[in-house]
Structure formats: structure tokens, C-alpha cells
């Protein structure tokens, strides 16, 4: 579904990504972990071209997307993204947050989008918050709404950029629960996170990045129980 070929990204003199060749198949739940500055967020943000790669190719559903002739807005409609800082639109109500993109892009009528939004809100138990503004919500509620905002576009893949890192510890659970439910429904997911329990439970594949490269990847069992690369061993010993 997503293929990267020799993906490289440079900020100034700093090679954040050092040639990544990777394939993510439909239905996979890929969890990316690694120390800060290892390029994992940049890798994720390159997948929907929030960062323009310096070199290399990105293919999505059989199309090379870092190409001048590709309408990236069309591609992004199929790639939902969830941010560390939620990035809800503070001047819009929860309902408007969810329905803005589908209606503005002409994918749904206002009524259809409203129905879809209410259905999604119902699912996360926040229907009564539809007319609230984001600042009236807790962090966990904001992030769950950010997730369903992306879901309202019916994406083929969801990208999560450290979705629980800005949350109070007691709110992490509700967000992970929703993500887990999504995974069980078969959503293709790429998740950058520090939540190792989530990686163990949900991932079909765990990747370890360091210095702009994918150093090691495996099924979660083998990855955590039998790490090979010394850098990964050191990393795991520090956080587990």
C-alpha cells in the first residue's frame, strides 16, 4: 500500500532520514519506535508529504506521490493523520471540526457529514459534546475527536504521530483503546509511539529507527524478547 524507496530527508546539514526502503501492506499495523531525533516522526510525516523528501520516492496505492503532477490533496484524503498536539480547530465546534473537510471537499453533503459525525461521536461516547468547542474538552477527549475527524474522511491508512505523548497519564488509556478498536476493524495503521504495551498488543510489525535508518524490525514477540542490534538492546533496556 505504501512503498518508500531510498527515502532521504535533510534539514540544513542534518540528514534526518538516511535512505529508507520500506513497504507497508494493507491491514498491517506498523509501530515505529526509537530515540528522539532518530527521524521516526519525519519518516511518518514524509508518508503524506507534510515533509517533502529530499531524495527518494514514495508510492501510495500504486502511484508515486512525490511527483509534481500528482494532486497531493486527493492523496491526503485517503491518509488520515493524528498529531501529538491534537490540532483541533479551536474556532470551530466539535461537529464542525469533523464535518469541515468532508463537506468542503464535496465528498459528503452537509447532512451526510453531520450524520457520519454524530455516528462517530456516538461510538466514542462524546455525542453530547458535538456543539462544544475544543477548549472545553480534556486532552483525551480532544485526541479521540482528532482521530474520528480523520476517520470521517474514510481513509485507507491512518498515521499516528505520538498520539499519546501530550496527554496526562490517566487519559492515555482511552486513546489507546480507540486505536486498538480501529486496529481490530482492520484499519492499516502506522504509529509512532513510546507506548511499548500498545506495540506489543496491537502491532503486526515493530520497527526500530536510529539515526535516520530502520535498524531492526520484527514481529512484536521477537522484537521485544529477542532483540538483535546492540543499539536496540540498549534502547529497550533503558525503557523497559
Amino acid at each position: 500500500m505504501i512503498v518508500t524507496k531510498n527515502l532521504k530527508k535533510v534539514f540544513g546539514n542534518n540528514w534526518v532520514l538516511n535512505g529508507i526502503d520500506e513497504t507497508i501492506n494493507k491491514g498491517e499495523k506498523v509501530v515505529v519506535i526509537g530515540p528522539s531525533g532518530s527521524g521516526k516522526s519525519t519518516f511518518l510525516r514524509c508518508l503524506n508529504l507534510l515533509e517533502e523528501p529530499t531524495e527518494g520516492e514514495i508510492w501510495f496505492e500504486g502511484k508515486k506521490i512525490n511527483d509534481k503532477n500528482v494532486d497531493i490533496n486527493k492523496i491526503r484524503q485517503k491518509m488520515g493523520m493524528v498529531f501529538q498536539q491534537f490540532n483541533l480547530f479551536p474556532h470551530l465546534t466539535v461537529l464542525e471540526n469533523i464535518t469541515l473537510a468532508p463537506t468542503k471537499l464535496g465528498i459528503m453533503t452537509k447532512d451526510q457529514a453531520d450524520d457520519k459525525a454524530i455516528e462517530l461521536l456516538n461510538r466514542i461516547g462524546l455525542k453530547e459534546k458535538a456543539l462544544s468547542y475544543p477548549n472545553q474538552l480534556s486532552g483525551g477527549q480532544k485526541q479521540r475527536i482528532a482521530i474520528i475527524r480523520a476517520l470521517a474522511m474514510n481513509p485507507d491508512v491512518m498515521l499516528f504521530d505520538e498520539p499519546t505523548s501530550a496527554l496526562d497519564p490517566e487519559m492515555v488509556g482511552e486513546v489507546l483503546e480507540l486505536m486498538e478498536a480501529l486496529a481490530q476493524e482492520g484499519m492499516t495503521m502506522v504509529v509512532v509511539t513510546h507506548e511499548m504495551r500498545f506495540a506489543k498488543r496491537v502491532a503486526t510489525r515493530v520497527m526500530f529507527m536510529d539515526e535516520g535508518k530502520i535498524v531492526e524490525q520484527n514481529t512484536p514477540e521477537a522484537f521485544f524478547d529477542n532483540p538483535q542490534h546492540p543499539r536496540l538492546k540498549e534502547f529497550l533496556s533503558k525503557i523497559l
Binding site: 484524503q77 498529531f83 480547530f89 474556532h91 468542503k104 480523520a150
Partner: peptide, 24 residues
């Protein structure tokens, strides 16, 4: 992040500017 969120939903630069950035 507001621009990124708008763009990641598939809105164009101008749409994001008009609907999300300028009102704020």
C-alpha cells in the same frame, strides 16, 4: 499544527488558509 492538520485532511493551501488559519 493548524495548517498541517488542515492539509492532512486533504484541504488545499487556500482552503486551509480561508477556513482555518485566517479566522483564527
Amino acid at each position: 499544527g493548524q495548517m498541517e492538520a488542515g492539509r492532512s485532511l486533504g484541504l488545499s493551501y487556500v482552503q486551509t488558509m480561508r477556513k482555518i488559519i485566517l479566522p483564527q
